[in-house]
Design a protein around this nucleic acid. Structure first.
Lengths: 208, 208
DNA sequence: TTCCAATTAGAGTGATCACTACATGAAGCC
DNA sequence: GGCTTCATGTAGTGATCACTCTAATTGGAA
């Protein structure tokens, strides 16, 4: 029996799960955890609430799944180009531009993540934990890149610069969310990369 | 028939309003707009819901009042020390340290503000609008400071550096919120000030 | 005293929340 | 056909939401 693309949609768990996640990602990316109601997700994806609860244990599980799905996509952008592609400055500038592009393509992930991260509720949502893990992985990537470009950097300086690099990325993203979609993050991220690069260079000069 | 203006502590009106705002600031700073329920504020301040609605028109009005109250306090920290206190770098480093201290003293304001700013709900809360106005004022302050220290900077560079300065402040604040209260923002803000200073200096060197 | 207005207390409104019980339907396998 | 599993549909559950109504209390003014 061939799969007819007919009007009558037959029960399709995988596709329904994706539709639920799409709707939940959009709504939670716009309104945060508390602002995302199951009824709204249900209306947006066209499936009843009971279907959502068949695919996901509870609301917490749904939000966590939203974060997890964007996980790999986003982390793939945090990569330093190989050595033969250019100078150190060129490489981290390209890396920064790549992160900027991925953030502009799919801002819901970081927007929801930052909202979850800023909240301090008594029972921490699992989505927040997952987001912080992704963040730590991204942070570790940067902490590996810096000594590769500046072997003379001591560990303390690497930690400080890593923190500063992450902060700049978050802050520039927030800036775009506030000011509007017209702002292009790429040149700002490139500037950020250059400033971090210069700072690292000066730090190595100081402690030979 | 002249309504005497000198109203004493007629009842606990003024004090009650402050208690409500204190409770609302703490709760909304921890859980955001949707996460702040009138019942929770009522329990935290010891006054019934009807009293909250006597002092404030609705929830939106309450949250906006929370933002407005922190307004002046916070803006007062965004000030460049006078010229005779040191070199340009020293002055903006001191300014950055002051902002860092004020953010660590009262993080609820910026945490709530950033949560409001990131949200994109159909009906924008008034608190969000107020927060963005405060932000614009702070931004204007920075945009005035930069040409004072670097008269040769063109307007485009000033705008870019201002955006980058704000972004760094936001991002470092977020970093502290995520990593925990043990992190000291002051040295990170000072580093940020130095990097912006160096960037501005190099920009003026490039276009004399 | 009496009156008035500023607050507060308490009870209650309908709406919406996350979540569930249960029946129904569709496909695969025999 | 019958049986099972996957998935959806219907119709709720009690709890909590923002908000309101009205009566009580309070202190100052007349």
């Amino acid at each position: 029996m061939t799969k007819t693309q007919g009007v009558r949609k037959r029960a399709n768990g995988v596709e329904s799960r994706q539709r639920i996640l799409d709707a939940a990602a959009r709504i939670s990316g716009e309104r945060g955890y508390e602002g995302t109601s199951i009824a709204a997700v249900s209306a947006a994806c066209g499936l009843p609430a009971s279907s959502i609860y068949w695919h996901f244990k509870d609301k917490d599980d749904l939000i966590a799944a939203v974060i997890e799905r964007s996980f790999d996509t986003w982390l793939a952008s945090v990569i330093l180009p190989p050595e033969e592609t250019g100078t150190g400055l060129e490489r981290i500038t390209t890396m920064a531009a790549g992160v900027a592009k991925s953030l502009m393509d799919a801002p819901d992930f970081l927007r929801l993540g930052l909202m979850l991260a800023l909240e301090r509720r008594p029972a921490e949502p699992r989505g927040r934990t997952v987001f912080l893990q992704v963040r730590d992985t991204a942070r570790a990537r940067i902490a590996e890149v810096l000594p590769e470009l500046f072997p003379a950097l001591d560990d303390n300086a690497v930690q400080t610069l890593t923190t500063y690099t992450m902060a700049g990325a978050d802050g520039l993203f927030v800036q775009r969310e506030i000011t509007g979609d017209t702002i292009d993050l790429v040149p700002l991220f490139e500037l950020h990369a250059q400033l971090v690069y210069e700072a690292a260079r000066r730090m190595t000069d100081r402690s030979p």
